Simulated assay, not measured.
Amino acid sequence: MKDSILNIPINYVNTEPADNKRSFGMESFELSVLETFETTTIKQRFQEPIFYNLLRGKKLMKFKNDIPIEYLPGSTMIVPPNLEMEVNFPDSSLVNPTQCLSLTIDKMKIASSLSLLNERYPRLDGQLWQLSMKDYSVFTNEEISSLIYKLYHLANQNTQEARIIAELTLTELLVLLFQSQNRKDLFLNNSFGALNDLVRYIQDNLDSELTIAFLSQQMSMSKTTLFRTFKREFNITPLEYINKARIERAKRILIEQPHLTIAEISYLVGFENPNYFTRLFKQYLHTTPTILRKTNQKLS
């Protein structure tokens, strides 16, 4: 299992608590380093939304009656207030501790960032930008992880310059999170005004050859306009959306149809080369199709 590219030294001064915590704060946020040195299971519930970024190790997260999900380094998780979760640390030890960054953000900062985005960059579908707190969300985005890591370093500096940069960095982080949630909605319900017909066409034809030239013709717009529209609305290119949609569908098929081989699934979702499919799957989900299937079978 690969750790995050971000590196924070482990604190071995106190290894007794199940979740050893070191906190750093500035005006609009508090950031904590959480370290676990033993195999254990804990239950947690927070009054404020929590933003997690796992740096090393592995967690199995279970919400409500859902199937536990494997939470690996490189992903950011948003946990809404008052949502109880059961967290299992299957591999934690003194030699191999689990390390995670936990971020809480002031509500007024979130509100002001949303107002700024809605005023200057309104969504194409006429809806307002918002931070959904209905359920947990998981994003695999190195840029988001890097910004949280940057906040950690800024919070360790007691200077006016660091505080100013931290506020700007926090705004940038929130904008990326809003866009990432918007992108998640794109995969779930495809209700995005001008892009709706195109998204539905892509979802209905993932097993076909989908080129940018063909899709731009379908939308009666230039390739440049199509690229710019997708990038602005979802912080993702059309090709990235197609690949991500194919991987998401493959993930569901892996779990729901265990009799199909990896090669068969890759063809079903539009990949001609199973090896390329596996590489892309690992790039997006930080695990291979085979490991994901085996993990789900064990957890079930």
Rank of each mutant, 00 (worst) to 15 (best):
E142S: 11
N14I: 05
L254V: 00
L170S: 02
E240F: 09
E119Q: 15
N189G: 01
L177Y: 02
E84K: 09
S222H: 01
Q181S: 03
T39K: 13
G270F: 10
L94K: 14
L116D: 15
L34G: 06
Q44V: 07
R183G: 00
E30T: 13
Y201M: 09
A263P: 04
N14F: 04
E30G: 06
L299D: 04
L124V: 03
H286K: 15
Q44Y: 05
E86D: 08
Y136C: 05
R228I: 11
L176G: 00
Y149I: 07
K231D: 14
A162I: 04
Q257A: 06
Y149K: 08
M108D: 15
F277W: 12
L188D: 14
T225H: 11
I67H: 11
T104F: 00
T41P: 06
V199P: 06
A155L: 05
L254T: 00
Q297D: 10
E142W: 08
M85Q: 09
I78K: 00
P289T: 02
I247P: 06
K21M: 12
N235E: 14
E86T: 13
V175F: 14
G74V: 02
S4I: 05
E167H: 10
I202E: 04
V199W: 00
Y201A: 02
P122C: 07
N20W: 07
E167T: 10
K64N: 14
T40M: 07
I78R: 00
F51H: 12
D204Q: 12
L268T: 08
T229P: 03
I105Y: 03
L151T: 03
I291C: 00
V87T: 05
R45I: 13
L226S: 00
V95M: 15
P97W: 01
Y71R: 02
S137A: 12
Q283F: 13
P90M: 06
Q217C: 12
S216W: 03
V79P: 01
P81I: 04
L206R: 02
K59H: 13
T290P: 14
K62G: 06
L103I: 15
T76Q: 08
P49W: 08
Y276W: 15
S220R: 14
L124R: 07
Q257M: 10
T41D: 06
K134S: 09
N273D: 13
N141D: 15
K223P: 09
A263I: 04
I50Y: 07
N11W: 01
L170H: 01
L195F: 04
L117Q: 05
E233P: 03
Q283I: 06
A245H: 05
N205T: 01
Y201H: 14
Q130W: 02
F281Y: 14
P289W: 04
I247A: 02
K21V: 14
P97E: 01
R228G: 05
F277P: 08
Q179W: 04
A162T: 02
G193L: 06
I5T: 12
F178Q: 00
F187R: 00
N190L: 14
M61S: 01
N243Y: 13
Y121D: 11
S23D: 11
R228D: 12
M219K: 11
T225W: 08
S4L: 10
D204H: 08
I202Y: 02
Q179P: 06
N53T: 11
Y267M: 03
S300N: 12
F281L: 03
L34W: 15
A263S: 11
I253D: 03
Q127E: 12
M77T: 09
R279P: 07
L174W: 11
S208P: 13
